[in-house]
Structure formats: structure tokens, C-alpha cells
């Protein structure tokens, strides 16, 4: 079943005289439980595509469906509710509200939705435990490392059990080690917690965690690459040994 679907999605920036298409005629379908990575050189429109999927930006033409709702037909309030309930965002920067604790940051979409605070905080604690940060609940973002902040952001995206999680370069600002932690967590979100995930990255090693990699160039999809399972360990071990011994 498709969670996200676009049809001739196009977004043009700039003046009328000199339009710069950021996303051009994109048809993309993401199925439930899929982990899709979007790759492409900078300026290829991958972030713009992600924002269009999440209702953060309005398309110039074309359509986006999230589950059954046509995003374009929603007014600002409905769109806000959709982002609150149906979409989980993880960004590269400015991911957390500095004056809120980790727990409150995670709880904020629930609280904005009017859930009683105590219950929201309890659910936030559970989400934090999932990303391994149960002991950091009362810390402020400035007291957390970059990787931990990003895991809090992931917990925030998970807490509402959204239809889709959209992650924009979530590891772009992290070192290899923290990056690995975060992307492992994303993978678990799909495998263990049955989330659907669309991730924009320029890092091949992050993209390799995905089930499917979509390549964008000049706002168009140039390759849609479904990856097959895990490797044969013995075979790989053999190959690698040769490499070592050569």
C-alpha cells in the first residue's frame, strides 16, 4: 500500500523571467514500510522534494498524496495537523528547541495536539528509551552531543507513530561514529517499529542502509534502485580476505 505518492510534481523557484526548476515532473510512490533514500548532487532538488512530501512547501504544479489526503487541498491548519500527526521530521540543523528538555522536545507534537502533558511526557519517555536516551530525558539540547540531539529528534519523529518519517541529511552534521548510530536507529525504525522512511542524504554509506535509492539530477529522477537483501557473508569474507592478503 502506498503511503506517499506524487504525480507530475514540479516546484519552480525564482522569478517569472528566470524560473529555476528545483523539482521537475516527479512521479514517486513510497510503499508502507519502505526505507527510501534520495540521493543526488547538491542542487538536484532532493531537499525540495522532501519538503514537498511533508507539506512544508507548496508545489508549483502536480500533486502529493499522503495516505489518502491530497496535500494541496489542505488549508494551513489542516496541513499543520497533518505534519503533527502524519509526518515525522528529522533535519540536519536546528532540530530541537533549545529551551525545552529532551523529553519536552519529544513530547511537543503530542502537546501541540492537546494531549494531557503528563501522558505526552510518558510517551516521550518511551520514545527516548527506544533511541537509547532514557537517561537523558531532562537534559537540554546544549547538554547533548550532536548524535544524541539527532536521536532526540528521531524520538520526536517517532512519538506520534506517523505515516512517514522524512529525514533531511540527518547525519550531515555528525561524525562517522554518531552518524552510524543515528542511521542504525533509522533502520530499526523501519524494521522493528514498522515505520516508513524517506531520507535525503549525500552519504553513500547512509544510503546503503535503505531498501531503495532514488537518484535525482536537475530535479528529475534518473535512477530508482531497489536493493536486494544482505550479502552472503562467506562469499564476502572470502573476497575481503583476498583483498587483505593480496
Amino acid at each position: 500500500m502506498s503511503i506517499v505518492r506524487t504525480e507530475s510534481l514540479t516546484k519552480v523557484y525564482g522569478d517569472v523571467g528566470q524560473p529555476i526548476p528545483a523539482v521537475h515532473d516527479v512521479d514517486l510512490t513510497v510503499d508502507e514500510g519502505e526505507f527510501v533514500a534520495i540521493m543526488g548532487p547538491s542542487g538536484s532538488g532532493k531537499s525540495t522534494l522532501l519538503y514537498l512530501l511533508g507539506g512544508l512547501d507548496k508545489p508549483t504544479s502536480g500533486k502529493v498524496w499522503l495516505r489518502d489526503s491530497d496535500i494541496d487541498a489542505l488549508d494551513d491548519d489542516a496541513l499543520s495537523r497533518l505534519r503533527r500527526n502524519q509526518v515525522g521530521f528529522v533535519f540536519q540543523f536546528f532540530n530541537l528547541i533549545p529551551v525545552l528538555t529532551a523529553q519536552e522536545n519529544v513530547a511537543i507534537p503530542l502537546i501541540l495536539d492537546g494531549m494531557p502533558r503528563a501522558r505526552a511526557l510518558k510517551q516521550a519517555d518511551e520514545a527516548l528509551a527506544r533511541v537509547g536516551l532514557a537517561d537523558r530525558a531532562t537534559h537540554r539540547p546544549t547538554e547533548l552531543s550532536g548524535g544524541q540531539q539527532q536521536r532526540v529528534a528521531l524520538a520526536r519523529a517517532l512519538v506520534t507513530k506517523p505515516s512517514v518519517i522524512l529525514a533531511d541529511e540527518p547525519t550531515g552534521n555528525l561524525d562517522s561514529r554518531s552518524s552510524d548510530d543515528v542511521v542504525q536507529m533509522l533502520r530499526r525504525a523501519v524494521d522493528d517499529w514498522k515505520q516508513t522512511l524517506v531520507l535525503v542524504t549525500h552519504d553513500s554509506r547512509v544510503a546503503a542502509f535503505a531498501d531503495r535509492i532514488v537518484f535525482l539530477k536537475d530535479g528529475k529522477i534518473v535512477d530508482d534502485n531497489r536493493l536486494k537483501g544482505k550479502g552472503n557473508a562467506d562469499q564476502i569474507r572470502e573476497q575481503l580476505s583476498k583483498m587483505v592478503l593480496s
Binding site: R84, V99, L100, G114, M115, P116, T160, K161, S163
Partner: peptide, 24 residues
């Protein structure tokens, strides 16, 4: 997916009050 809790306006306001205090 969460259900809306439009009745519980107080939770939001309280959280915002906390935020306001901290920002101040």
C-alpha cells in the same frame, strides 16, 4: 497516528508558559 485532543487546550498552554518562562 495520534488522535486529536482538542479539549485539552491547557496542556499546550502550560507547555508554552514553561517555554515562555525559559526564553525570558
Amino acid at each position: 497516528m495520534t488522535t486529536a485532543h482538542p479539549s485539552n487546550f491547557g496542556s499546550t498552554v502550560w507547555q508554552m508558559t514553561l517555554m515562555g518562562l525559559r526564553y525570558l
